[in-house]
Design a protein around this nucleic acid. Structure first.
Lengths: 147, 147
DNA sequence: TCCGATTCTCATATGCAGATGAGAAAAGGG
DNA sequence: CCCTTTTCTCATCTGCATATGAGAATCGGA
């Protein structure tokens, strides 16, 4: 579903979003709260800071603070920091680089699938996950719901 | 979007599905048609054969043939052979293993996202991609449609 | 039996996950 | 004003999984 790095990042963001008071949380606190390896999470938090999703402060009383309102922070914006998509090399059928103009027969359908998968992450915000109410996506898709 | 192994497998299946006559295709033919590394694709095709999606025949006039009708072969069935999901270790919020009974506040929403992402692959068949008509999924999701 | 193609096995490259340690910045105390 | 503590920042290192490559082994048909 998600790479482990994206998973750590999402959990860290959720912890930060739940810290109601404006006080920053240290990296090791976040690691303990999420069950992530502290050493690795430091790198991940650093990447999130560079991406502008969190702000970092050094020294005593330092730590990390969410830099984007939870209601405006989509899950896709988090995962995109780590699961960067390889550029589409060639089209699914044949060898020509398939674009809107020279579309192969699978192009439309495949693009729709990619968009649908992305939309599941792009249309949900951190606040949506924390709110825990009113899921706008279907909850009981009749699939063999293994992960 | 997909791991490169799943990508190779999907392209190989599409090539096999397009081979209308019943004659098998050799691994190197499929590799050339899809632009995949031949040596690696052999292993991938072998895995697909073990999963029962294709049948393999050795010797002269040997090769691979699609073992499942294209209309009954969902994309998820292909990708599941390679992108096997890590078992969900703990819930997104907190540490308890989150199940249907003890659901955290994010559980429903997160489950919906996972199902939606899977549905995009599970609800499309190889025949759907080749048919190239009547896409039932939305094609113009208003996203920054990069990959 | 012989050839060709698949299939198995080993070797290597690349990247990610995770660990470790040195260094830089910020705050507070002396 | 300097020093120490605290914390992030950055570079490097190792293990592991995946991706890739090349050759040997094996099987089936002619």
């Amino acid at each position: 579903m998600l790479s482990s790095t994206s998973d750590y990042a999402l959990r860290a963001i959720l912890v930060l979003a739940q810290a109601t008071d404006g006080r920053p949380l240290r990296a090791d606190q976040i690691a303990r709260a999420t069950g992530s390896p502290a050493n690795y999470l430091a790198k991940t938090l650093n990447a999130l800071a560079k991406a502008g999703l969190v702000t970092s402060a050094r020294g005593p009383f330092g730590g990390f603070v969410l830099a984007v309102p939870a209601a405006e922070l989509s899950l896709a914006r988090i995962t995109d920091c780590f699961d960067e998509p390889r550029p589409q090399t060639r089209c699914l059928l044949g060898n020509a680089p398939c674009d809107q103009r020279n579309a192969c027969s699978a192009h439309k359908r495949w693009t729709a699938i990619k968009n649908a998968r992305r939309a599941a992450l792009a249309d949900t915000t951190v606040a949506d996950l924390l709110g825990g109410s009113a899921a706008s996506l279907p909850t009981d898709v009749s699939l063999s719901s293994h992960q």
